[in-house]
Design a protein around this nucleic acid. Structure first.
Lengths: 175, 175
DNA sequence: ATAGATGCAAATATTTTGCCGCCAG
DNA sequence: CTGGCGGCAAAATATTTGCATCTAT
């Protein structure tokens, strides 16, 4: 399996009939601000990495984060990206995805927006869309209620064949 | 972070007020049968690994699969476990989880039952429960409808603090 | 001043691959 | 028979850690 071609996919925001649109860009600068507010040390490298995460319009893997960070300040190292991501994970400020292992076991990160959203990936073209739904909120509430638990994180990833691919390749249609 | 202590967690089937109980054990032998039916070669090692997956009452990682397989037939190797899992993934017969990376980046596998279920993990004690809900089915239908897509796989993992841990450790309560 | 952050290299962990001999169909 | 499968070792990928140095507070 050639893990060489990292097909780039675009995250398409979508207004659905019942799902509502999501816009993560509206919170630009949120990570930098929150980290500072929490009294965490703000180094040059952190500032750069946080800015990259804040400005990202889609989920990024560590190499993409490093690449973008270096365009701003070449004095950022991969290890620091890992350590900063660790920090943000522990602070609950970013979400970690693996997109159903569609492209290897890489992990993807994105700033945790105000509301959870679902990632919907096409197994053929690799396009990833986001989806937000009241049903999803209800589902989490149901889990909290039924188990008497306090839900703090959730991740939903859905795979299948998108409308475009179904139109192009009739053999995909089955169920 | 010591990756040494693989805390063992038990998958607890649960009858919820609105979620319905799930029982994967009822389909014992299903993998062995399906693989044979599809005309795939049935080697000694495959038979053993499939039996392990069929008999598993919970998700297992590769090492656990290997360990159990060797108790039946010591002539099974890790690479073969990986290759067989690959086969089963491609055939859509098993699900791959990572349980929110609660215990490192290991992957867990389980026979894909008749209906999807959600994995609900406690971030404190590590206990993982399964949950099935009509809301979840509705959610997937909504996605299929809104995007015009054919949904073939889905994975939902929810983390938080379970009732027991909340009772034991009041400091967990926040939101 | 000093706890905590970074850089660098090396160690770990996990999964995949090449190649060859072997076995199920 | 023969093409796919399994064993073994080595490679590839991904992430973490030890330690000395540096820096934000």
């Amino acid at each position: 399996m050639p893990s060489s071609v990292p097909r780039r996919t675009s995250a398409v925001s979508h207004r659905a009939s019942t799902g509502e649109r999501i816009n993560t860009a509206e919170t630009t600068g949120r990570l930098q601000k929150t980290v500072a507010d929490r009294g965490l040390r703000m180094t040059r490298q952190r500032r750069v990495i946080l800015q990259v995460m804040d400005d990202a319009e889609q989920h990024l893997d560590v190499d993409q984060i490093l690449e973008r960070a270096r365009k701003i300040d070449s004095d950022v190292h991969l290890v620091t990206v890992y350590r900063t991501i660790d920090l943000l994970k522990k602070q609950g400020l970013i979400d970690e995805l693996d997109l159903l292992h569609l492209r290897g076991d890489r992990h993807y990160y994105e700033s945790h927006g105000p509301r959870d959203h679902i990632h919907v990936a096409c197994l053929r073209c690799g396009k990833v869309r986001e989806f937000e739904s009241r049903l999803y909120e209800q589902l989490k509430e149901q889990i909290a209620r039924d188990f008497g638990m306090q839900v703090t994180v959730s991740r939903t990833e859905v795979g299948g064949y998108c409308a475009e691919c179904l139109a192009l390749d009739a053999s995909l249609r089955s169920s």
